[in-house]
């Protein structure tokens, strides 16, 4: 049942209302993402470099579709405060992947690496995952992440990534989806990767620490294990971790809205 009470706080954090899984009701806002400005030109260039989408969508169309998504949110009183937080627009290529893990390894993580290295030639992106992702990942039930994959099967997808489920356990992030507006889905691997291609500095902070970002829209074949992006100093990393369904001040997940 969609909610009518506030969905997001004044900083864009999705309020952990009505969930049983662990999430912090209050936050001291210690692990933060600085709200970056969106440079559509640079973002598009990197996304095109990664996914060769220029034949399907122009920079102007990209900017226009993102603007439409943001306008739809701004027009909704309950959703509007999400715009006060960090966000990253992205494009996903039209594609169908039988194996999400394999596609992450062959396409999306290399794309993040390339974009990050171009943006930060002195720093590194590293995939620390100790084992192959082949066959390891599927859509988490209840995450609505399948919406993103279904649209990818039909067309180039434009969306906006919001890392706003801060201080949620992975199960809490999934549980929260049940009462959020249907336009939102929980971010998984392709959309989060595309957000980093679009804005490689999303987790780059000099004055404080940014949160770890789970790919909560995906479930691993290993119980209580999920995959995530995380800063390590000025570097960006990808890794797996046991989460045991617990909450940490440092852990966040992301919502995605496509349009």
């Amino acid at each position: 049942m969609p909610e009518t009470s506030p969905l997001f706080d004044e900083f864009g954090r999705c309020l952990p209302t009505g969930i049983n899984a662990p999430a912090h009701q209050k936050t001291r806002r210690y692990f933060l993402i600085d709200k970056p400005d969106i440079n559509y030109s640079a973002s598009y260039e990197r996304l095109n470099q990664a996914f060769s989408i220029s034949d399907a969508i122009s920079q102007e169309q990209y900017e226009s579709r993102v603007t439409s998504i943001l306008a739809e949110i701004a027009d909704n009183k309950l959703m509007k405060p999400i715009l006060n937080g960090a966000m990253a627009p992205f494009i996903l290529p039209k594609a169908v992947y039988d194996d999400i893990g394999q596609a992450m390894e062959s396409t999306f993580l290399p794309a993040v690496q390339s974009a990050f290295n171009s943006f930060f030639p002195d720093y590194d992106f590293k995939n620390h995952s100790p084992r192959s992702l082949n066959g390891q990942l599927s859509v988490a039930p209840g995450s609505r992440h399948q919406q993103v994959l279904d649209q990818m099967a039909n067309e180039v997808v434009v969306g906006v990534y919001f890392p706003c489920l801060s201080e949620y356990s992975v199960p809490a992030a999934i549980e929260r989806m049940a009462t959020l507006p249907e336009q939102f889905s929980l971010a998984g691997g392709f959309d989060t990767s595309a957000a980093f291609v679009s804005m490689p500095d999303l987790l780059f902070r000099k004055e404080g620490y940014p949160p770890l970002l789970w790919l909560s829209g995906l479930v691993s074949t290993e119980q209580n294990v999920a995959y995530h992006f995380e800063a390590y100093g000025y570097d960006l990393t990808f890794n797996r971790r046991v989460h045991l369904g617990q909450v940490a001040e440092y852990w966040s997940s992301g919502l995605v809205m496509i349009g």
Binding site: R28, Y30, Y209, L212, E230, V247, A248, E249, Y250
Partner: peptide
């Protein structure tokens, strides 16, 4: 304990002002 158990990237006593 919420300060000690959860995963965090920084040094609690060396970096967390609170």
């Amino acid at each position: 304990n919420p300060w000690l158990g959860p995963h965090r990237p920084d040094c609690l006593i060396g970096e967390d002002p609170k």
